[in-house]
């Protein structure tokens, strides 16, 4: 997995590329927690190049959403591939996460 943090139109965008699994979730957890602790309470997670998610990865999404909601911030996920979208559906995550088709749409939230 590779993570890239960009600033786009005043928004922090974290692009997740590759496999978010048992061996890589801790990197994402650390990166997002650090951003949050530094005061970034509005984040966009670009998942368009994320082709695999494990349950440990799903827990990271839930963890950061809880943190961000607790301070009234906003978290938007975008570009989920169909298989990942399906896993979110199975997990009941579609109703609790803000999900957009593309980064453009996420920026125009």
């Amino acid at each position: 997995m590779h993570l890239q943090i960009n600033e786009v139109a005043g928004n922090k965008v974290v692009a997740i590329e590759g496999r978010l699994d048992t061996t890589t979730y801790a990197d994402l957890e650390k990166t997002l927690t650090n951003l949050f602790d530094e005061g970034c309470h509005n984040m966009i997670l670009d998942c368009s190049a994320m082709d695999y998610v494990s349950s440990s990865g799903l827990r990271v999404f839930l963890m950061i959403l809880k943190k961000i909601k607790s301070v009234g911030g906003s978290l938007v996920l975008c570009g989920l591939q169909p298989a990942i979208y399906n896993v979110f559906e199975i997990s009941g995550f579609l109703s609790i996460f803000s999900i957009r088709d593309s980064l453009d749409q996420a920026l125009n939230k």
Binding site: L62, M63, S91, S95
Partner: peptide, 22 residues
Amino acid sequence: DINLSLEDRKIGGLGIHFMRTI
């Protein structure tokens, strides 16, 4: 209960749900 609101959700605990759903 996967219809719980975010506040009521526990991190984890999806294993058995996955087994049953998948």
